[in-house]
């Protein structure tokens, strides 16, 4: 579904990602692990076109997306979350999720200004879609809260919810469990299952919590210093000597 072929990028002198290639199959949960600064977030930024690759290519659904504009990525069916959350802070959870529906709009500015009946119909449709996501992730009690006032853990979940509102084919999650306690992390692993099985969304996830990784993912890729160490099942990767040394410690 998604294939990265020899992608590389460097910032100044630092080679953040060095010729990494991987394939993500439709319907799987693919995790990326690695020590801090390994280049995991950078890979997300390359896929979602926030950075340009130095060389290499990314294909999604047999389409080369290496050069499409940033805002077009969402329309192709790729949604993402950010490591330290990037929400629309001054708006409510509901408004944030409605913004997530933006790519599904069929109206134009003129219709919006006049609020024609078609706009109302669309708003109701969006709202229904948003409520489904709210129900899935149990965010009912936060619906009308302003993001700036929410605790960190809830923001992480709102970000996942916003990404789901895009109805993506591929979901990129950057450390979804950071800031959640073990109980909440467990809920997350169930939600991941729902996302994968009920919604049929392929997931790429950057994660440090090995429990969650081994519970939720089908395959794992380990990186260090921008280079690939290995790709395999959670058990294989967890016991790889290089991974043990660089990532897990001891």
């Amino acid at each position: 579904m998604l294939a990265a072929d020899n992608i590389a990028v460097s910032f100044g002198g630092i080679k953040a990602v060095k010729d990494v290639s991987f394939n993500v199959e439709r319907g799987e949960v693919f995790s990326i692990i690695g020590p801090n600064g390994a280049g995991k977030t950078t890979i997300f930024n390359l896929i979602s076109r926030i950075y340009d690759v130095d060389h290499g290519s990314v294909t999604f659904d047999d389409k080369d997306i290496t050069n499409v504009p940033t805002h077009a990525i969402a329309e192709l069916g790729i949604a993402r979350t950010f490591q330290n959350t990037e929400l629309f802070e001054r708006e409510t959870v509901l408004k944030n999720l409605l913004i997530g529906c933006h790519i599904h709009r069929k109206t134009n500015l003129l219709k919006d200004l006049l609020f024609l009946p078609s706009v109302r119909v669309q708003e109701l449709e969006f709202r229904r879609a948003v409520e489904e996501v709210i129900d899935l992730l149990d965010l009912q009690s936060y619906r009308d809260k302003v993001i700036g006032n929410l605790p960190y853990g809830v923001r992480k979940m709102v970000e996942v919810a916003r990404a789901l509102c895009l109805k993506p084919k591929l979901l990129l999650l950057d450390e979804p469990s950071s800031g959640l306690n073990p109980e909440e992390t467990e809920d997350l692993s169930f939600w991941l299952e729902d996302i994968k099985e009920d919604l049929g969304i392929t997931v790429i996830m950057v994660e440090h919590d090995m429990n969650l990784v081994s519970r939720a993912s089908d395959r794992v890729m380990a990186l260090t210093d921008g280079a690939l160490i290995t790709i395999g099942t959670p058990a294989e990767v967890q016991n790889h000597p290089e991974v043990l040394r660089a990532f897990l410690g001891d």
Partner: peptide, 28 residues
């Protein structure tokens, strides 16, 4: 009308975070 429809929400999105507005498919 503008503010309760998606055009208005796009403006708000651009105000609060351009990076994530882009990832939501909003043309800045």
């Amino acid at each position: 009308n503008l503010l309760r429809s998606s055009s208005g929400r796009a403006m708000v999105a651009v105000r609060d975070s351009e990076v994530s507005a882009q990832s939501m498919g909003i043309h800045i």
